[in-house]
C-alpha cells in the first residue's frame, strides 16, 4: 500500500514500440535517475487511468504524451490542466482513456493532483513498424527533459503551500 502520495508525479504515457508514441516513456526514462526520491516516475503507462491512483493527493503531476494536432513535428505543447485540454489530447492519445479524459474524471471524482501539467509532443510518426523515436522527436524529448527538470526543481524549491498556482 502506498503510505502517502508522492509530492510530484512524472508520467510518460505511450508505447515504446510505436514510433514517436514512445516519447512519453523515453522522457520519463531519461528523467528518472536524476529526480529526487520525492518524485514518482512512471514509465510507459499503457492505461492512463492508473494516474487517478497515483496522482491523488500529489502536489504536482506532469504528464508527457505524444499528440498530433497538425503543428510541426517536435512542437512541444505545455498546458496547465486547469482548463479543459484542447482536442489533440482528447482524440489522439493512443490509449484507452485519453489523458484529457483521465484529468476530467479525476476532477469529477476529486481525485487529482493539486496541479496537473500536460506536455504534448507533436509526433512525426506513430507507425507500429517503427521502434524508437524519429530524430526530430528525439531532440524534442531532450528538450522536454530539461523543461520537466526545471519545473520539478522549481516546485520542490518552494514551500508546499506556495506552489498551487506556480
Amino acid at each position: 500500500m502506498t503510505a502517502s502520495p508522492p509530492r510530484v508525479v512524472v508520467a510518460g504515457i505511450g508505447n515504446l514500440m510505436r514510433g514517436d508514441d514512445g516519447v512519453g516513456p523515453v522522457v520519463a526514462t531519461r528523467l528518472a535517475p536524476a529526480l529526487p526520491a520525492s518524485v514518482r516516475t512512471l514509465v510507459g503507462l499503457g492505461d492512463p487511468l492508473e494516474l487517478i491512483e497515483v496522482w491523488d493527493g500529489a502536489e504536482l503531476a506532469i504528464v508527457v504524451d505524444a499528440v498530433v494536432s497538425g503543428a510541426p513535428p517536435g512542437t512541444i505543447h505545455v498546458l496547465d490542466a486547469d482548463e479543459p485540454l484542447p482536442s489533440m489530447f482528447r482524440r489522439l492519445s493512443t490509449h484507452l482513456f485519453s489523458v484529457a479524459q483521465v484529468i476530467e474524471l479525476g476532477r469529477v471524482m476529486e481525485r487529482t493532483a493539486d496541479r496537473v501539467v500536460v506536455i504534448g509532443v507533436e509526433a512525426a510518426s506513430m507507425d507500429q513498424d517503427q521502434i524508437g523515436l524519429t530524430p526530430q522527436i528525439d531532440a524534442a524529448a531532450r528538450e522536454v527533459v530539461s523543461i520537466v527538470t526545471a519545473m520539478v526543481d522549481d516546485h520542490l524549491s518552494h514551500d508546499v503551500g506556495a506552489v498551487g498556482n506556480a
Binding site: 514500440m17 489522439l92 492519445s93
Partner: peptide, 14 residues
Amino acid sequence: IRNYDPCISCATHF
C-alpha cells in the same frame, strides 16, 4: 461492438 471489449490497443486513433 463494446460487448466484445475489442482490444485494438497500441493501434488507435479513430
